[in-house]
Design a binder for these strands. Structure first.
Length: 478
RNA sequence: GCCAACGUAGCUCAGCGGUAGAGCAAUCGUUUCAUAAGCGAUCGAUCACAGGUUCGAAUCCUGUCGUUGGUACCA
C-alpha cells in the first residue's frame, strides 16, 4: 500500500454529535495517524464532515424558526468543534452544502442517467402525515401509524426518479462474495448478501420538500439524501476540482460507518459507482454503538454526552485512550465515566505517567546525558509485527495492550536493576540501564503517537536530551 | 415471525478440539527512583442453559433462554 484514504460517516445535522459518534471519529483518526507514520504524511487523506440536506433538517430548522441554511451551519460548526476538541486530524471537513459537492452530485447523477439507470416512475406508499414518512405494510398496526394511531394512513403516489438498483443485484452479490475484505467484520457481509437477494429499484428524488440538491433538468425534485451524501467521498478528494488529488487517493481504502447505515455503503454506493464507471472502495469497516451505563445513548433517556464535556474533565488523550482501549470497534460496547476514571488512574497515571516520571527523575538525579539522540525512525518501529497486525485487523484494544505490556516490562526491569542503588555505588552499569530505559520510553512514545498524539509529543520532547529533566505529571491522579 | 452476531472470573476481553488465561478491581506482602505510584502473591469462572458428536468440547452440531442488529425508501 502506498497511499491511504479513509473516511468517517458524515454526521446528519439534526443534532450535535455525541460520544457514540466520537468513538468512530477517534478510531478513524488513529488509523489516519498510524498510516501517516508508516506511509508518510502526504500519502494519507482523512475526510469527515456533515450531511446536511433532507427533510429532517428542514423540519428541525422550522421547529426552531431558523432559516434552514443557518440551522445546518450551526450544527455543522458545533460538530466540527467537537471533533477538534478530540484532536481529530481530518484533512477536510466536508459539508454536503459545500458548492463543489453539489456539482459532483449532479455529475454523478448525469453519469448514472447516461448509463440508462435513472427512470421516471411513480412511488406509491402508505403515508402518515404526522410523521411525514412512508411506512411499509408490516410496520403498520391495524392499518394505522404506530406513532399516530388516530390519523388515517393515506395511500400517496409520488412521481419520482428511480435508480435501477436491481440491475446491479448479481454484480453486488458476486462482488461481496469474491472480495472477502470488502465488508468488515464478515458477518455483516452475510447480512448484506441476504438483503441483496431482494434488491429493488429505489426512488432517488423527492418532491414533497425543497431542502436538497435539485435534480438536473427538473428543479421541482430534489435528490434523495443518501444519493447525495454518499457522493461526498468523491467530492472530498477533488473528484471534479482536483484531478491530481483524486487520482492519487481514489479508491477509498476504508469507509468507516455505523452499523445502522451499512446497507447504503455496502449495496447502494457500489451500485452507484459501478453505474458511473468509477472504481469501488476497498473496505467498509462497520463500527458498533456505544452504550452508557448499559443504556442506549438517546435524548429521551437523557444520557447524551458531548465529547468536549469529557475532554474538559480528563483531556482529549484520556478520552481517546479509554474509548479505544476498553471497547471492540466492530461490536457494541458499554462505557461509563466511572470506568474511564478507573482506566485513567490505573493505566495513564499509575502506568504510563508514573513510568515517564520515574525514568525522567532517575536521569535527572544521575545527571544522565542522552548521547547522539538521533531522530527516531518512526516508520521502522511501527513495523513491529504485534502492533501492525493489530492495525491491519482494526484491533485497537490489542495494539494498546501491546504498548501497555511494554510499559509493565520496563517497570519490572527498573525494579530489578534498581538504578537508584547503582547511582549510590557509582556503578558504570547505571548509564547502560538508563540508556536502555530512555530508549524504551522513546519507543513507547512512537507507538503511542496514533492514539495519544499530545502525550506522545510531550514525552518525545522530554526525552530528546541531551539533558533529561523531571516535568509535571502527564496524567495527575484524579 | 424470519435471518444473523454475541453470551468465558465483579468489570473489559483473549482462547475457538487436548488438563480454564490476561489486565483492572479486591486482599496480603515488598521496594523507595516515581503521580500514596512500582513489583510479587492471593482471591476469583460448574466457559448462558439443556442435549448430542468425540477417547476428549468453552471450542463442532441441535434446541432453549437472553442481548443486539437486519427485515427497504428512516441519516
Amino acid at each position: 500500500m502506498s497511499k491511504f484514504y479513509i473516511t468517517t460517516a458524515i454526521d446528519y445535522v439534526n443534532d450535535t454529535i455525541h460520544l457514540g459518534h466520537a468513538f468512530q471519529k477517534i478510531a478513524t483518526d488513529v488509523l489516519a495517524r498510524y498510516y501517516r507514520i508508516s506511509l508518510g504524511k502526504d500519502n494519507v487523506f482523512f475526510l469527515t464532515g456533515t450531511d446536511e440536506y433532507g427533510q429532517k433538517a428542514e423540519k428541525a430548522a422550522k421547529q426552531q424558526n431558523i432559516a434552514t441554511n443557518e440551522f445546518v451551519k450551526k450544527i455543522s460548526d458545533s460538530d466540527q468543534k467537537e471533533q477538534d476538541s478530540l484532536n481529530i486530524s481530518y484533512d477536510r471537513f466536508i459539508r454536503t452544502t459545500d458548492s463543489d459537492h453539489a456539482e459532483v452530485v449532479k455529475e454523478i447523477w448525469n453519469k448514472v442517467e447516461k448509463n440508462g439507470d435513472v427512470y421516471s416512475g411513480e412511488y406509491e406508499g402508505s403515508y402518515c402525515e404526522g410523521c411525514e414518512a412512508y411506512y411499509t405494510k408490516e410496520d403498520l398496526i391495524n392499518k394505522k401509524c404506530p406513532i399516530h394511531p388516530t390519523l388515517t394512513i393515506k395511500i400517496i403516489k409520488e412521481k419520482n426518479y428511480f435508480f435501477k438498483w436491481s440491475k446491479y443485484k448479481d454484480f453486488l452479490i458476486n462482488y461481496i462474495r469474491n472480495n472477502q475484505d470488502f465488508i468488515f467484520p464478515t458477518h455483516r457481509a452475510k447480512e448484506m448478501l441476504e438483503f441483496a437477494k431482494n434488491i429493488k429499484d429505489i426512488p432517488i428524488s423527492r418532491s414533497n420538500f425543497t431542502w436538497g440538491i435539485p435534480v438536473p433538468n427538473d428543479p421541482k425534485q430534489v435528490i434523495y439524501v443518501w444519493f447525495d451524501a454518499l457522493v461526498n467521498y468523491l467530492t472530498g478528494v477533488g473528484f471534479l476540482k482536483d484531478k491530481k488529488l483524486f487520482n492519487k487517493f481514489w479508491p477509498a481504502d476504508v469507509h468507516i460507518l455505523g452499523k445502522d447505515n451499512l446497507r447504503w455503503h455496502a449495496l447502494l454506493w457500489p451500485a452507484m459507482l459501478k453505474s458511473a464507471n468509477i472504481e469501488l472502495p476497498k473496505t467498509i469497516l462497520v463500527n458498533g454503538f456505544l452504550n452508557i451505563n448499559g443504556q442506549k445513548i438517546s435524548k429521551s433517556v437523557g444520557n447524551v454526552i458531548r465529547p468536549s464535556e469529557w475532554v474538559k474533565k480528563y483531556g482529549a488523550d484520556a478520552v481517546r485512550y479509554y474509548l479505544l482501549r476498553y471497547t471492540n470497534i466492530t461490536e457494541d460496547s458499554d462505557i461509563s465515566e466511572e470506568k474511564l476514571l478507573q482506566a485513567y488512574n490505573a493505566d495513564l497515571a499509575n502506568g504510563l505517567g508514573n513510568l515517564v516520571s520515574r525514568v525522567a527523575k532517575l536521569c535527572e538525579n544521575s545527571n544522565y546525558v542522552q548521547m547522539g539522540s538521533e531522530e527516531r525512525t518512526s516508520s521502522h518501529l511501527i513495523d513491529i509485527e504485534e502492533y501492525s497486525s493489530a492495525f491491519a485487523s482494526f484491533k485497537f484494544n490489542d495494539a494498546l495492550s501491546f504498548i501497555w505490556g511494554n510499559i509493565t516490562e520496563l517497570d519490572k526491569l527498573i525494579n530489578e536493576e534498581k538504578p537508584w542503588e547503582l547511582a549510590k555505588q557509582n556503578s558504570p552499569k547505571l548509564r547502560t540501564i538508563l540508556a536502555h530505559a530512555v530508549d524504551q520510553i522513546q519507543e513507547i512514545a512512537v507507538l503511542l503517537e496514533p492514539f495519544l498524539p499530545k502525550t506522545a509529543e510531550k514525552i518525545e520532547e522530554q526525552f530528546r536530551g541531551p539533558k533529561i529533566t523531571s516535568q509535571k505529571p502527564l496524567f495527575p491522579r484524579i
